[in-house]
Design a binder for these strands. Structure first.
Length: 552
DNA sequence: GCAATACGCGCC
DNA sequence: AAAGGGCGCGTATTGC
């Protein structure tokens, strides 16, 4: 299959340079302004891999022209992975414009001009960068894993752009009805909705603080303390333990005020235009490899407003999520057969109980989450020795990652994404071995920072490998969905939302059953891509629904 | 006056 | 002995 390298030229022209599989030159085309979409659509028929500096700089405009591409190489994302990978000889990746690639940021939706003249990307040579990346990967002892990671990352970039382009169907009328029921009618600008005003009045009366602004944590804290309550902050879980008549209306106020500010009428005006919610997804936006997002708070769409995500007439949403992704990934990457055995159950925590490791599901969950996050206080800490006996390989993997982080070393995901090197002052000093710990002072601060970094690297290996599993799942599913349908992307079954371990597919009603099958098949493919023949199950909860809220 | 930071809370 | 990972976003508050 040919690789076609696209490069922006002056005046809106584009150069398309063909290479054969083994890298030999195979022709070059110069395209005038406006000719790109037609050219790409034509070349897609035979199948090519597009090589470009950055998907966010090319693909949105192609999608807007109705052109979908099958595969690409995203050099920006590839560079970001490879420059940090411990599996790689960094010298092979270094070239004259490496600092430019290091600094390259994704284009933002506002930069809608297809070829901004001042784009720093235009100073970079994509052909040279592709050569360096391929040479560096080919020389790596882990070239297979790295190649998989780069392919998945590029595929994810395509999926991300497609999800923004098609959008998640969003019924403003349903959302508005929900707001009115909970908050009262939409207030004039600057005024509180009726229900918030009522609750604020109750809180003021109960605290004998007639001028209290319940939106000010500092004021609320002072008022609570003046009422004789021993609280140090105003967080909900702190207040929940306080027995005082001001607390219930205050908690309700906070809940509804949160809804208003995060997903109220202003959110609707800004983000639910034309019946679609279109956040920007940022593949690789988190150091662990998870996606970040911007616009509309896509990473935290509250369950409270999910009833407004409703498929169009004649269509359905297929909502699928993985049960306990990260513990399953930990079982796979550590090769822990006992934990993989527990993962054979649809509920991994019940599987742990059945395997005799712990007595209850709650203990299993606490213990595993503590092992992955580094929480060892209280009950999760008491679970750890038992888990370590029953699941020695899994537990030692995360413990080793924590110790490596505390030593200032870099850790890696299964496919080779490296953790960032530590920057804190503690990292410049060796471990204070054999010295008595201190309660306070600079060394106590360093120890605390060191342990915090260990918790980060402990979690990095699991969260990052979980992100790799999810990315493979997403990439394989994307291709399967395309083959299920006909016509333009938005008419076929297509991804509309992705959140760490959950996908939402928008599909014609009659294809929903087929989509469910493909979602399961993709999960199987992802498991085999990462863990080969070491059997770890990744069971899915899948629902075919009209509204997102009806899933799970 | 605007920009940066802190707080709090939603999601996984 | 103590030890809870990753985000985005809106409001209030602080800093310049």
């Amino acid at each position: 299959m040919h690789r076609v390298l696209l490069r922006r030229l002056e005046g809106g022209h584009v150069e398309a340079r063909d290479r054969t599989d083994d890298g030999a030159p195979a022709g070059v085309a110069r395209l005038g302004p406006g000719e790109l979409a037609g050219y790409v659509a034509e070349r897609e028929r035979a199948g090519v891999r597009w090589v470009w500096d950055d998907t966010t700089r090319w693909y949105p405009a192609l999608l807007a022209s109705g052109v979908r591409v099958e595969r690409c190489t995203d050099l920006r994302l590839g560079h970001a992975v490879l420059r940090r990978s411990p599996f790689l000889d960094r010298a092979l990746l270094t070239g004259p414009d490496t600092p430019g690639w290091d600094a390259l940021a994704p284009a933002e939706p506002g930069d809608a001009a297809l070829f901004p003249l001042t784009d720093p990307a235009d100073a970079l040579d994509p052909g040279a960068e592709e050569d360096r990346q391929r040479a560096a990967v080919a020389a790596s002892p882990q070239r297979g894993r790295l190649a998989l990671l780069l392919a998945a990352e590029s595929s994810g970039a395509l999926a991300a752009a497609e999800m923004t382009a098609t959008g998640l169907p969003w019924r403003a009328d349903v959302h508005e009805r929900l707001l009115t029921e909970l908050l009262g009618p939409r207030p004039a600008p600057g005024l509180r909705p009726r229900e918030l005003e009522r609750l604020a009045g109750e809180v003021r009366a109960e605290l004998a603080a007639p001028d209290l602004n319940p939106d000010s944590p500092a004021e609320v804290l002072r008022a609570l303390q003046a009422a004789g309550l021993a609280v140090a902050d105003t967080r909900s879980w702190t207040l929940e333990r306080i027995d005082h008549p001001a607390v219930p209306p205050l908690l309700e106020y906070k809940r509804l005020a949160r809804l208003l500010s995060a997903n109220g009428w202003a959110w609707l005006d800004t983000w639910a235009r034309d019946g679609r919610f279109r956040p920007t997804f940022l593949p690789g936006g988190v150091v662990t490899g998870r996606w970040a997002s911007s616009g509309g708070g896509a990473l935290s769409v509250p369950t409270l407003v999910r009833p407004a995500a409703v498929a169009d007439e004649g269509r359905r949403l297929v909502v699928a999520d993985v049960a306990q992704l990260e513990p399953r990934v930990l079982a796979g990457m550590s090769g822990d057969t006992a934990m993989a055995e527990a993962a054979r159950a649809a509920d991994l925590y019940e599987g742990m109980v059945a395997g005799g490791a712990v007595a209850t599901r709650a203990e299993a969950k606490l213990g595993i989450l503590g092992a992955m996050y580094g929480g060892t206080r209280g009950e999760s800490g008491r679970m750890l020795p038992r888990l370590a006996r029953r699941y020695p390989r899994a537990i030692s993997l995360v413990e080793e990652a924590a110790r490596a982080g505390e030593r200032g070393e870099v850790v890696s995901t299964l496919l080779g994404r490296g953790s960032p090197p530590p920057t804190g002052a503690w990292a410049q000093r060796p471990l204070d071995l054999g010295e008595a710990p201190e309660e306070t002072g600079p060394r106590a601060d360093r120890d605390r920072d060191r342990r915090a970094w260990g918790r980060f690297t402990r979690n990095f290996v699991v969260q990052g490998t979980g992100a790799e599993w999810a990315l493979c799942w997403l990439a394989d599913l994307r291709n399967r969905l395309w083959r299920l349908g006909e016509g333009p992307l938005e008419q076929r079954p297509h991804l509309v939302f992705f959140l760490h371990d959950e996908v939402v597919v928008d599909t014609p009603e009659e294809l929903a059953g087929a989509v469910v099958e493909e979602v399961h098949r993709s999960a199987g493919v992802a498991g085999r891509l990462l863990f080969g023949t070491f059997g770890v199950d990744f069971p899915l909860d899948v629902a075919v629904v009209r509204s997102w809220a009806d899933a799970g």
